[in-house]
C-alpha cells in the first residue's frame, strides 16, 4: 500500500515534469518558426539591424502580397500551385499504383509472383538520389524537363506503399473475396466495391505521408526545372537566396517559407481528423 501511495505521488510530480519537458521542447522547436514569422512581418532594415525583433511588425500584408505576386524569381503563388500539383500527383499516383500492384500480388496467382514482389521490395533499398542520373537521362529523352509529368512520374512508383497495402490486404479474410465471388463480383468490382472502401483509413494515412513527401521534394525539381515558372516552392526558397553581391530580400524569403509550410499543415490537420474518425469507425 505504501509503495502504491509513493507511486501516486511520484506520478503527480512526474506529470508536471513531463509537461514542463514537453513545453520546453515545443518552445525550442517552435522558436525558429516564430523567428521566421517575425522576420516575414518586418522590413529588411529591422532584420539587418541587431538585435532582431522578437515581436511581429506591421508589414505582414505588404510582405506576403509582394511574395505571392512577384517573389524574387517567380511569384510564390505560381510556385505554390506547382508544388500542389506535384505533391497531389505524387501522393495520388503512388496510392493508385501501389493499391493496384498490391491487389495483383495478393489476389492473383501468376508466374513469378514472388519474384515481382521481391523486385518491388528491392527498390525500397535504392533512394532517389542513387538513381537520379539515369532517371534524369530518361526524363530528358522523353522531353519531360520543365513539365509536371517530369516532376511527378519518376517519383510515383512506391515500394513502401505497395508493401503496406499488401500487408493490409493479407489481413482481409479470404471468405470476403469468396463471398464477393459468389455474389458475382468480378475481380475489379471486388477491388472497387469492397477492398477500396475497407482500405480508406490506410489510404488517408498514406496520403498524409506521401503528400508531405511530394511537397518536400527538393533535389529532383531542382534538377529538372530550369524555367522559373516551373519551380516548386521548396526549391524556390533556395533559389531566392542571393548569389554574389545581390541583396537578400529576407522578409519576402521568410514569408515564402511560412507560406510553404501552410499546405502540409492543412493536410495533416484535415486528414488527421478524417483518419482518426476512420480508425474509430473500423474498430470492431
Amino acid at each position: 500500500m505504501a509503495e502504491r501511495n509513493g507511486m501516486v505521488e511520484k506520478r503527480g510530480a512526474g506529470l508536471w515534469l513531463t509537461h514542463l519537458g514537453l513545453i520546453i521542447g515545443v518552445l525550442f522547436i517552435f522558436f525558429p518558426i516564430w523567428l521566421a514569422f517575425v522576420a516575414s512581418t518586418v522590413t529588411q532594415q529591422d532584420i539587418s539591424q541587431p538585435p532582431m525583433p522578437l515581436m511581429p511588425g506591421d508589414k505582414f500584408l505588404e510582405n506576403y502580397a509582394r511574395a505571392l505576386t512577384s517573389g524574387v524569381n517567380a511569384p510564390v503563388a505560381a510556385m505554390l500551385v506547382n508544388s500542389l500539383i506535384m505533391a497531389l500527383g505524387i501522393a495520388l499516383g503512388k496510392i493508385v499504383i501501389s493499391l493496384l500492384s498490391a491487389f495483383a500480388i495478393v489476389y492473383f496467382r501468376f508466374p513469378l509472383r514472388k519474384l515481382f514482389f521481391w523486385l518491388i521490395f528491392l527498390t525500397l533499398m535504392l533512394p532517389v538520389e542513387v538513381r537520379i542520373v539515369p532517371t534524369y537521362e530518361v526524363i530528358a529523352n522523353f522531353k519531360m524537363l520543365n513539365s509536371y509529368q517530369g516532376l511527378i512520374l519518376p517519383l510515383v512508383a512506391s515500394a513502401t506503399a505497395t508493401f503496406l497495402f499488401r500487408q493490409f490486404f493479407m489481413t482481409v479474410p479470404d471468405e470476403l473475396a469468396e463471398a464477393a465471388r459468389v455474389d458475382g463480383a468480378k475481380p475489379m468490382r471486388f477491388f472497387i466495391d469492397i477492398l477500396l472502401p475497407m482500405s480508406r483509413t490506410n489510404i488517408a494515412a498514406l496520403f498524409v505521408i506521401l503528400f508531405i513527401y511530394g511537397w518536400n521534394q527538393y533535389l529532383w525539381p531542382l534538377l529538372i526545372t530550369t524555367d522559373p515558372g516551373m519551380n516548386t516552392i521548396v526549391m524556390g526558397i533556395k533559389q531566392m537566396f542571393p548569389s554574389g553581391d545581390d541583396l537578400a530580400d529576407w522578409p519576402v524569403i521568410m514569408a515564402t517559407s511560412i507560406l510553404a509550410m501552410v499546405p502540409p499543415v492543412l493536410v495533416v490537420v484535415g486528414m488527421q481528423r478524417l483518419f482518426v474518425r476512420g480508425l474509430v469507425e473500423s474498430e470492431k
Binding site: E175, E178, A179, A180, R181, V182, D193, I194, P197, S282
Partner: peptide, 30 residues
Amino acid sequence: VEPMDRDIAMVFQNYALYPHMTVFDNMAYG
C-alpha cells in the same frame, strides 16, 4: 462454371459480411 452462374448461395463460417456496408447493402450487393 463460375460460382455466380451456378445458381447457389453460400453462408460462411465467419459470415463474410462486407464490413463497410449496411445490412441492406450486404444483402442487396449480389
